[in-house]
Design a binder for these strands. Structure first.
Lengths: 203, 203, 203, 203
DNA sequence: TATGAATGAGGCTTCATTCAT
DNA sequence: GATGAATGAAGCCTCATTCAT
């Protein structure tokens, strides 16, 4: 090995443990850019500097790779949401903090966010868990808000949760792909306002 | 002749326009059920009781067929929206009427609605027009509302329009596929409320 | 009929007997421009202002249509060659007269010439007759020339005939498609010279 | 293992380069026999003992495969022509040597010659390079001959080159497909004679 | 672990031809 | 004779996946 001429670092030169990580990383970026369906495993492999077979060695199939990606995304999202001060109990502040957590996730992991907030992925079999998590956590938040009196008691929480996920997918998925198109403040503001006050003027 | 076994009347016996209509109808249902990408032209043709070539005779290619479908959907949607009484000027009532128009469309043309409110279709080249129409009409509504003072003047209308489209796609697309899962009243209510008051309790 | 509004003359308005002629004419031009294989029967029919079925009514299939075209071409060619004065007995003058006859044909019927001198057509089953005619007539001319002492007695006439056909296909087929690129005089000269003296300088 | 039935070594056991070579070889023979258009990729693959995908793995598409074939043919042809003694300066001998080089190529690589001297291929987009090479090299030879005084100064070299290519396509293309129908001597003789003296008797 | 040539089912599209009107 | 919607075999190409090295 020491006799080898200098090369750009490729898969062999890097730690094997890194391979899996790099594959996930490259996959996140390609899936974010072109979508999972339009990203071929061959392209993914070559971008990652490994052979196609290696992808299958690590993930079994493309679907599992997507699942892993979504799992990772959810994990980072949870971590971000976990940073919210538990003292936050005021309705508006709490929602704002949550929306900020979501936006933080999208800003820090734009590729993962683009993959997570991609309706195609959420609708695929591999995305069931992620979709359920998003819907459930929205629904839980809503139900907690109802219990606490922040939200109307007659709210159809399932339906509302669905709508909220739609907003997140549309806004955060877009923002993750176009971070320069809006500031985090704007994103958090629209998400919070829409949830708390709708669009109506504060008359 | 009398000895011949009964034959189903084949496509050649049916009129051209009937075939085209049937193809659009079958395509709408298949695209609604499985998505455009997972619907093969062969399957579409056989479900419609015609040969593959017939699909291409009528639509040139799959993309054009999708476009036709979306055009039809938009046309029905516009028609439904056109029924709104022009006297409706009150903010809440107007929004409610609009949401009801959308829901009417989804109820009356569930397959077309499922195709129209499918993010994959809206993101495809064939869906550009439809996507633009949806976004523009949301944005126009928002700007009219701002002018009329119903909505906050500092609303980032592009961002808000995006969010609203996300809600429609999520709620109406889902409802079109699962009409039994919610009543039209519930759908209209959540759409209207979310837009006018957000989710917070009317305290 | 008299009550009909004026229309561009289409198949119905023209004599039915003309239909066949028009089909042959349009086919000649399309085959000349794009080749037989790239000309679809649908396109042919629409250019001729008739329905696809009509093509099949008149010619049975595409191959037969090509055959008819080649037959017509050969017929015109023969007619042109028949104009050569039977008194022409001198070797050079005779060849020149023949080459001029060929060039006349190509000039007067450029589309037919382009179809006839198209190697793809000559190689197709439908072109066997035409190919044989061309080769045979070249060979006959050569053998006559040999008998008359104008050509070398040890000439491999089959081989030479093949070469001559190659020249005709290449030169006349090209000229038929690009009549402006060379004058008839130049065409006749090169064909005659090549045959009589080769390319060698007259030293 | 010993219980396993004997298997033909499949493509996977063979080296990449071997497969590519075999594909080119089989393609050359099929294209020579039936023409490129009538050779299906499926048939090509099965004749080569590989799956369809393998063809596309190696060549991207059918056109590129044809190009490779033509490139190879030109390369062999150039090699053959390169063997001509540079001392050959006499007009007749030089032409004879060149014609012999061409015939050597056709004799040694009959399939490639049949593909190269196929007017359909030369007219296709993939054949542009090859067609240009053939025409150009004929034209160069002619212009050199004119300079050296071997050919008439008033020769329309573009037209003459066209005629010469026509002869080569017709004679060598045919001979490559029917090697038994004429001896190399005959081929070289007719090509040389036609070019140097035409067909007339040496009176 | 890693490789990457090979696989082959399956998708989209074309077009010569038919046949009921 | 004429029509033209319909047919369907067949072609080209893609890409997730496998497996011998």
């Amino acid at each position: 090995m020491e006799g080898q001429p200098q090369k750009l670092p490729n898969a062999r030169q890097r730690s094997q443990i890194e391979t899996r990580t790099r594959l996930l990383d490259v996959a996140a970026h390609l899936f974010a850019k072109d979508g999972c369906n339009k990203t071929t495993t061959k392209n993914l492999a070559s971008q990652a500097g490994v052979a196609v077979g290696t992808v299958y060695l690590h993930f079994g199939d493309k679907d599992t790779l997507l699942q892993e990606l979504l799992k990772t995304a959810i994990s980072h999202l949870k971590q971000e949401m976990g940073k919210i001060s538990p003292g936050e109990t005021d309705g508006f502040s709490l929602v704002q903090a949550k929306m900020n957590g979501l936006a933080n996730f999208a800003r820090r992991f734009p590729a993962l966010a683009a993959v997570l907030f991609d309706p195609v992925n959420l609708a695929s079999p591999a995305g069931q868990d992620a979709a359920n998590f998003l819907t459930k956590s929205q629904e839980n938040g809503l139900m907690a808000g109802i219990s606490a009196g922040y939200y109307r008691g007659d709210l159809h929480s399932g339906l509302a949760a669905r709508a909220l996920v739609g907003i997140l997918v549309q806004i955060l998925g877009w923002w993750a792909r176009n971070p320069q198109a809006a500031s985090q403040t704007e994103i958090v503001e629209i998400l919070t306002e829409l949830r708390m006050n709708g669009l109506k003027s504060q008359g």
